[in-house]
C-alpha cells in the first residue's frame, strides 16, 4: 500500500472505499439489449457487457460512441442496476436538450446497437452495503442511489436504508413503481391529491437524523449542483457530520 499524506484540516472529506481499479483502463464492447421508458424524459438502457467485472452500488462508468469518421463522444454515467452476475448493467439517462450522447440514446438507439464502456470507476460514491445509508437524490440523481436500493433488496440486507427522492411531479419520478417503505418522494411542482408540493426541506431530513440507527448514517447526495448544495446544507444543519456526506454532482 502506498503511503499517503493526510492533511490537518478543520473540515473533512469522507473516507475512501477501496475498490479494484483493474477494469477501469480497458474499453469493452457493450450491446443494448433492452430499452424501458421510465418517464417522459428518462429511459433505461440495458447493456450486455460480457466482460463486466462487477461493480459496487453507486459507481459509474464511462461510455463512448464513435461516428463513422472516427469522431468520439464520451460521458460518465451512473450505473442504475445492482451488482449481479448477469453480465449486464443498466443506465438510466435523461434526454438532455441538445445532448449529443443522450440524444442518440433517446432518438436513435435500439436493441442490438453496440457501443463501448470502461469501468466501473471511482470508489468514492460507492456503497458496499455495510453501513446504514441515507440517500438523497433529485431527478436523475436518483440513479446511483437506486443501485443501492436494489442491492439492499436483492441481498435482503438488514442494515437500515432510507431514500428521499425529489421530482417535479409524479410523472417525472423515475422508478416510481419500484419504491417501497424505504422511500419518501418529494414533489416540487405537482403532487397527487393530499401530498404537499414544495422543495425538500428540514422537515424531511430532521426526523431521519433524529432517529438514527446505531453508529449513524452514511449520507449519499446526488443531483444537480444546486440540489446537492441545498441538500448537503440541510444535512449539515440537521447534524450529519460533513465527513460522512458523499456528494455526486451531475454536470
Amino acid at each position: 500500500m502506498t503511503e499517503t499524506f493526510t492533511p490537518p484540516t478543520r473540515f473533512a472529506v469522507p473516507g475512501r472505499i477501496s475498490v479494484s481499479n483493474r477494469a477501469a483502463g480497458v474499453w469493452q464492447n457493450a450491446t443494448i439489449t433492452e430499452i424501458r421508458r421510465e418517464t417522459p424524459h428518462a429511459a433505461t438502457f440495458r447493456l450486455a457487457v460480457p466482460d463486466w467485472q462487477g461493480h459496487l452500488p453507486g459507481q459509474h462508468l464511462m461510455l463512448r460512441l464513435t461516428a463513422g469518421d472516427g469522431y468520439v463522444a464520451q460521458r460518465h454515467y451512473s450505473i442504475a442496476s445492482a451488482p449481479d452476475a448477469s453480465g449486464h448493467v443498466e443506465l438510466t439517462l435523461d434526454h438532455v436538450e441538445g445532448g449529443e450522447v443522450s440524444g442518440w440514446f433517446h432518438t436513435v438507439a435500439r436493441p442490438g446497437d453496440r457501443l463501448e464502456v470502461r469501468g466501473p470507476l471511482s470508489g468514492f460514491f460507492a456503497w458496499p452495503g455495510d453501513r446504514p445509508a441515507l440517500l438523497i437524490g433529485a431527478g436523475s440523481g436518483v440513479v446511483p442511489l437506486m443501485s443501492m436500493v436494489r442491492h439492499h433488496r436483492a441481498r435482503g440486507l438488514s442494515v437500515p436504508l432510507r431514500l428521499l427522492v425529489s421530482a417535479r411531479g409524479p410523472e417525472e419520478l423515475i422508478y416510481a413503481r419500484e419504491y417501497g417503505a424505504e422511500t419518501t418522494p418529494v414533489f416540487t411542482r405537482s403532487a397527487p391529491y393530499g401530498v404537499p408540493v414544495g422543495r425538500m426541506a428540514a422537515a424531511h431530513v430532521v426526523p431521519l437524523l433524529a432517529d438514527q440507527p446505531p453508529g449513524g448514517w452514511e449520507a449519499y447526495v446526488c443531483g444537480s449542483n444546486g440540489f446537492a448544495e441545498h441538500a448537503s446544507r440541510l444535512l449539515v444543519a440537521a447534524g450529519q457530520p460533513v465527513e460522512r456526506i458523499r456528494i455526486e454532482r451531475f454536470g
Binding site: 461516428a67 463513422g68 469518421d69 449529443e100 438507439a109 446497437d113
Partner: peptide, 13 residues
C-alpha cells in the same frame, strides 16, 4: 474502430 450505428455527433469544430 467500433462505429456506433446512427451516431453522428456534434458538428466538427
Amino acid at each position: 474502430m467500433n462505429v456506433t450505428r446512427g451516431f453522428t455527433g456534434r458538428p466538427r469544430v
